[in-house]
Write a protein that binds this DNA or RNA. Structure first.
Lengths: 326, 326
DNA sequence: ATGAAAGCGCTAACAA
DNA sequence: TTGTTAGCGCTTTCAT
């Protein structure tokens, strides 16, 4: 593999000049620059990112840590991060943690060990340790889920989303509304459930815990919740699904029970990009995932460019698309 | 940031000993190892991956290059890659190219510049240039789509999948079967269409080009194909969808036309993980995406561990789940 | 505008 | 088993 020394020798200049041609800021005479370029092409020179990273103590790579790469919500977010980061000349490393603390810790370790420029993280749970990142002075932005009191973060208004979903069902005439959400350890899951409860109570209705199910944020969770809820002595007439995958599971299982909405009302928090039936009959609270990614990436870039303001939390709001009355 | 020198001084040993404790292979006496560990913990030492990569000319990172991170087929594959790679101590960097050659080239550049150990790639199209990787001696494994005549590759049997999907529809009694597939520039799209054609011709049926649509491998492509096919003077009575997203689009649009299967037959090449209606009425040719990822990763690891056998192509087969007769 | 030289933090001979 | 030492390829003063 050719190095700047090889290129320098062939071009008849010093290694420093070759370096200057590639870093671009320091002026180099046109003639020498041209000679360097020709020599580099001839030797198929590719500058060593690792050497540069070692020397400069930083690389143009940012880590994006997410709990579930198979969830379209997070991939949509990843697209947002990518677009903004790539435009600014950064590469994005996607790290999938499966919501597993050990895996997450391993990836954060890699991030500091590889001297990545910064980290955007949708944390597995509240226990994530950002200590090493902080000590090494790497900026971190939390997305989707907050992590520490005073840090940069972009989150959804989850309570509002939960309330809006519930209210849309109430407005459509449903009265016995259940809620299926994610694990109680996950902030977003709790907040969405709180929104459901608040909306019901605002209308003077009870929010019995028998109608609230903490589950996993996965398709299977939605499916089994339907079975459990329908088996109850006082089954609900509508269900709020706490995220997109739960929504898919709920709709799947309901269809198998012959209860396609609006026979039983359904509101989903999050989009259903791969739904195979018309979702007109389903209330959807669209969450701007891509926007969240873009905004988070921009916050991180600002920090990398020396922004020293106190940390801030940005809250994004969902958009309600009520079920069409038929 | 603490270095091995700081740790060495505090532990009262040489830097080399610290290094040996971390690399693990060379024996170190228990006492010194313990001292090193304590010193490292006290100084919150994190070894510099960049320094190590520079020194050893390689890093424990592999790049996974895919054309569409929002397609569950590729994320499922990514999971397979991740599992195998992580178990072997490698991190996986996910690079999303959007099927864009320039983006792809940029990522491959990063891969060699960062001295990544190897690359697994589902190429944007046949024009991808692997030259730089080869020159730098980095192993490459193609997945989903081949790229060069003699290279390691794991692909699906796409012709067979296309034929199986078509035959299932024929067996179910449909006779005017259309096919919607991806861009003609994409190998998998062509092969699946060829399978469709071959299956029809084997039964002595025509495969008129009016019933074959090259589109994009996206939801929207399936939707518009339905409209175009239904508007024809001699509309089909069944449709083969060339990938999962096309299948989603086809099913969506058919439902909007009031033509839910089996009113119009549908076979999908690929899985429908987020379908919201029961897919019993749809023929699905499940493609083992996760398996493809695991196998590709294993092939790459073998190369990294010195496997010098001639390159090989492994072909994986889909599994037909015919629509349930109702 | 250009070159010489030091050093980023680590590993791998080699010596002891 | 342990320490000494010489780089890996680059950037960056400091001179010129």
């Amino acid at each position: 593999m050719a190095t700047i020394y090889d290129v320098a020798k062939l071009a008849g200049v010093s290694p420093a000049t070759v370096s200057r041609v590639y870093s671009g800021v320091v002026p180099v005479s046109a003639g020498k620059a041209e000679a360097v370029r020709r020599a580099a092409a001839e030797l198929r020179f590719t500058p060593s990112g690792t050497a540069r990273a070692l020397r400069t103590q930083s690389s143009e790579v940012i880590a994006l840590v997410i709990p579930d790469i198979e969830n379209p919500y997070f991939t949509e977010m990843a697209r947002g991060v990518e677009d903004v980061a790539n435009d600014a000349g950064y590469s994005v490393v996607l790290c999938n943690t499966d919501g597993d603390r050990a895996k997450e810790a391993a990836y954060l370790d890699v991030a500091v060990s590889a001297r990545m420029a910064g980290v955007i993280i949708a944390a597995a749970d509240a226990g994530t340790d950002l200590g090493a990142l902080h000590e090494h002075g790497r900026p971190v932005v939390a997305v989707d889920r907050t992590l520490e009191a005073a840090m940069d973060a972009v989150v959804m208004d989850n309570r509002e989303a939960g309330a809006a979903a519930t209210e849309a069902l109430l407005d459509a005439g449903y009265g016995r509304i259940a809620c299926v959400t994610g694990p109680e350890t996950v902030e977003t899951a709790r907040q969405r459930a709180e929104g459901w409860r608040a909306a019901l109570e605002r209308r003077g209705l009870a929010a019995p815990s028998a109608r609230l199910r903490y589950s996993t944020f996965r398709v299977e969770g939605g499916r089994s919740a339907v079975d459990e809820l329908l088996a109850a002595s006082d089954p609900p007439d509508a269900i709020v699904a706490g995220n997109n995958l739960l929504g898919v599971g709920v709709l799947q299982r309901l269809a198998e029970h012959g209860l396609t909405p609006p026979a039983l009302g359904v509101a989903v928090i999050g989009s259903l990009p791969y739904a195979t039936l018309p979702v007109d009959a389903v209330t959807v609270v669209r969450l701007p995932a891509r926007d969240m990614g873009e905004t988070g990436a921009q916050m991180l870039l600002d920090r990398l460019h020396g922004d020293g303001r106190p940390p801030r939390t940005l809250t994004l709001h969902g958009v309600v698309r009520p079920a069409q009355p038929r």
